[in-house]
Nucleic acid binder design. Sequence first.
DNA 1: CGTTGCTATGCAACTGGTTGCATAGCAGGA
DNA 2: TCCTGCTATGCAACCAGTTGCATAGCAACG
Lengths: 188, 188
Amino acid sequence: MALEHAILVSLLEKPGSGYELARRFERSIGYFWTATHQQIYRVLKRMETDGWVAAREVPQQGRPDKKEYSVADLGQAALSSWLHEPIEPESVRHDLAVKIRGAAFDDPAALVREVERHRQVHTDRLAHYLAGEERDFPGEYPAGAGVEPDAERELQHVVLRGGIAYERMMIAWLDDVLTTLRRFGPGR
Amino acid sequence: MALEHAILVSLLEKPGSGYELARRFERSIGYFWTATHQQIYRVLKRMETDGWVAAREVPQQGRPDKKEYSVADLGQAALSSWLHEPIEPESVRHDLAVKIRGAAFDDPAALVREVERHRQVHTDRLAHYLAGEERDFPGEYPAGAGVEPDAERELQHVVLRGGIAYERMMIAWLDDVLTTLRRFGPGR
DNA sequence: CGTTGCTATGCAACTGGTTGCATAGCAGGA
DNA sequence: TCCTGCTATGCAACCAGTTGCATAGCAACG
């Protein structure tokens, strides 16, 4: 399980409340790890009792108070030991691939719309990533010349580049899928 | 949930026992949908009581008997209706991306080995896919000239091409990650 | 003043997936 | 003969993740 660790990383990058974390999981972090707010609150509570994070009541004006969490020493240690133990390359789950192979026993042409919809989602995500890269990492080259560069920033960037590469690959593949599907007439 | 549907597709491609399905989920299907044998047996039993699949006792020589499952009409209908309803583009979970961003708060250089290990796994999978493509789809071109081509075969191929594209993308990205990681010295 | 909507947190029930363990047939080698 | 190993199936307990619902503060709008 890596939700705890994803939360630790996010809180190290910037402390925040459960609510704020949930919002981050809808955006940047959410592109490689998803979690609902219920899950986050539950895990956060467990992490607090385990001493991984410390909570601080923050009164706010114009909105309800919040509990701002930050990483405690135990949490830092837990993250560190997790980083040092090997993990298995993630197991993939592609519903769409199941559908595509299943379409052979139904109506291949009927999948075209669905695949086009997915393609649109990936195109949107790519545009969103590229905008984020433009905004947060302008004028940076993969092989920058600076001595001892900023690790946090560079590593965020390389993860983002991974997202970009993934979306580009998906779009190209979905085009391949569409070409293939369109070779079959309607009906079975 | 798509495990039921993945099983239906697999059984339509070729009927088989729970054990055989479990083995398939370790290979071809397993590359876009994972499942353990326990999960498969449990779901298979439910599918049988729901009338989605039919079981047939097959006595074997030299090994225990097996229950061979094949898809029933209700299962075919269930698959068809699933194929026609839209699904959300899958939520990704990349432990490695969490680790990479987390490495900024620990020791970036210590991740090099782990990333190299992952790169090796993806290289192996790519080789495995390419060998399978060579074996099962020799001398085929993306835009084949045949009229009314074999849907099952072509759709299996396009899914395989997706796997190949994914592995190539991952290898290239992991190289990018390694280059980035190596710019940081050991220790924090 | 009531409604809508955003921030902020949480419980309870359920479903899907994992892990550990158990059983049994049979083959082949030590 | 016993042990290892592969085929084949399954139970029980647990853990992670989802869904539905509930509450509450406060702002802005009509």
